[in-house]
Nucleic acid binder design. Sequence first.
DNA 1: CTGTTAGCGCCTTCAG
DNA 2: CTGAAGGCGCTAACAG
Lengths: 341, 341
Amino acid sequence: MPAKMEDVARLAGVSTATVSRALNTPELVSQQTRSRVLAAIEELDYKLNLAARSLRTNQTRTIAIVIPTISEPVINQVVEAVEDAAINADYTLLVCSTRGDAQREQAYIELITQQTAVDGVLYISPRSAPEHVLKLARSTIPLVMCNYRADGLSAPSILFDHVSSIHQATRHLLDLGHRRIALLNLAAPYYYPARMRREGFEQAFAGAGLAPDPSLIVQLEQPTYDTDEWRAAIEALLDRPNRPTAIVAFNDAVAFEVYAVCRARGLRIPEDLSVTGCDDTLPARYVNPPLTTVRIPASRQGHLAMEYLLACMNGESPPIPPLTLLDVELIVRESCARPGA
Amino acid sequence: MPAKMEDVARLAGVSTATVSRALNTPELVSQQTRSRVLAAIEELDYKLNLAARSLRTNQTRTIAIVIPTISEPVINQVVEAVEDAAINADYTLLVCSTRGDAQREQAYIELITQQTAVDGVLYISPRSAPEHVLKLARSTIPLVMCNYRADGLSAPSILFDHVSSIHQATRHLLDLGHRRIALLNLAAPYYYPARMRREGFEQAFAGAGLAPDPSLIVQLEQPTYDTDEWRAAIEALLDRPNRPTAIVAFNDAVAFEVYAVCRARGLRIPEDLSVTGCDDTLPARYVNPPLTTVRIPASRQGHLAMEYLLACMNGESPPIPPLTLLDVELIVRESCARPGA
DNA sequence: CTGTTAGCGCCTTCAG
DNA sequence: CTGAAGGCGCTAACAG
């Protein structure tokens, strides 16, 4: 049986109230009482019972972060930044990855909305229908989202500016002289960034007084790691009689899939086909040729989200507007050239 | 003020004990009582208070997973597998990434060893001195480790067979006719896999009746993501008057760094230099040329670790021996050729 | 099958 | 600055 506060109190010759104060509000306890308490704690190897504290205080110092998967570089960075910020604020992280499974998401939301489960929630890049998310939003627990928007959802959301990211990439290709440009996009109906990307694509064309060929816009539901589907889509694109001279991929992983297909077909990048990615993941620098892509401020998003959440939880006013767009930056490397060069 | 069990009991016309039973041991409650209780729960939107339950039951249904960082592909997979297994067993995951920071590790261990913080701990690939880990091991909380061994540490550990992984890679190069083979290894003194890899390297040579050139074994302390240090080490290796004809990198990320350096110098892989990696991360297939590397069963490790931990927590006998080596497999792609080919 | 009762260990007024 | 006392919400004996 581990020591409890009462044991410490007895050994130190004080009351449990004093022990508690020595721990939580040391400034209210005299120097020597405090050190006697500390000594007793040391001697008994006393450990605070967190459940008891939570029951009393109604807080857990834990926040839940729900993410689609832990195995995507951008999500990684966001989680890492969130964790750093959480540690600084003395919070701990419950990781809930849904893996695109609605049931699992449901179960996590169920858990999270229990009393005294967590003090706040970060919901990163959900692909799911608003119903699920609304359940969370309706609960009293503070919620901050990233990369999500839906009608009737008032939760604050921090978004990468993906209309700009794809706009920049497309513009870059347009400037090089490309016209037959394909867009490889995600089709998840509730995934807001997908809509933004499509918009960026179309706006870039519009900005040049042109319009994209709708048949070159392919939108798949499969997440990036389902490479087979993506590969098939890419093959189909390159099989077309009048194949595109450039491909805008919605993220680096899909761009690499394009690399793989090209390699298999003996198509040279960028001579035979220009390609852009998005996210500027690590391999973008390593592949051959290095990938022109868009850098997005992932850790910044994580930090901001956590700060926002902290503010919500403390009843302070948020540091940024409830709908914040984060700037992105085109990184030109060597995967694009003039068409037919 | 959210509803508590008492409110539900009152509305359903039963005692709180019955409500509790209806929730936790429904088979002990009559069909109709149960449905009345459920109805009341529904009506009041009652949520169980987890802190109160934990206080009573002394368990949290949470397990802590401490990892060096969340941004390494292998760690990713392990965490993902662990989470899957945890969900199946109705546990939830507290993620503690140390980022190689001893203080932070300390703080997490402090947290974890509090009462009612978590029910068990998974410690994955620690790079730290045994002292830190021992503190955990001495506590009463169930602990399972991955990729760690130290004298005086009795905690079970599941290890990738890295003497085999590097042995296979080295052997492959030896078989191709290479003799001047360099090893790029991690030097973290307490990182057991590093020692295994070195051993695998030396054993491969010994198996061929040869001995490696000790000056071609470079061991750096920097984690993989500190690319500058690694790049410098690679440059130095290639600057040597009698430079190696092949490089065995301890993981794919470092191998890619070799790719980058070669590209910058106009050195062709594999014609001018053969390279092997380890871990078989996603980009290994995408880089040019595709990387010969070693596949390690990351999700298997995660699953096994969680199963082992579950067994410990339930007082059952573990499914595997306390020291288990996991098989690895060489994946031959196109980054190696005969020397001077 | 159901109710009564007694804490789990801590924090927090309220007095002193 | 310190102590006494009550209760956070739930579960687990123990009776019935």
